[in-house]
């Protein structure tokens, strides 16, 4: 599973990356978590507000932080 956190460096983007990494470790997922900071590439995903969460090249959330429950659901769906 490819997980990308989109964000240019705002505090929420950093917290999202941390949340995702912790959740991946907690659920013992076989996932590759990367952070995309290049604005041109971020725009390629069509989001209007950061942070964005991309799982297997699909935007699943943008502009806010998910709750713990939501993140569980998002990550275990795939």
């Amino acid at each position: 599973m490819e997980i990308k956190v989109l964000g240019t460096g705002c505090t929420k983007c950093k917290s999202l990356e941390k949340m995702v990494r912790e959740k991946v470790a907690e659920l013992k997922l076989d996932a590759n978590v990367t952070k995309e900071e290049d604005i041109v590439k971020i725009m390629g995903y069509g989001i209007l507000s950061t942070p964005g969460l991309v799982i297997n090249d699909k935007v699943v959330m943008s502009g806010r932080l998910p709750s713990d429950k939501e993140l569980n659901e998002l990550l275990s769906k795939i």
Binding site: T11, K12, I39, I42, M43, L48, S49, G63
Partner: peptide
């Protein structure tokens, strides 16, 4: 709106 999202918003 948060000013950190000003760029993606402007572009979009």
């Amino acid at each position: 709106f948060c000013s950190c999202s000003a760029i993606p918003l402007f572009l979009g």
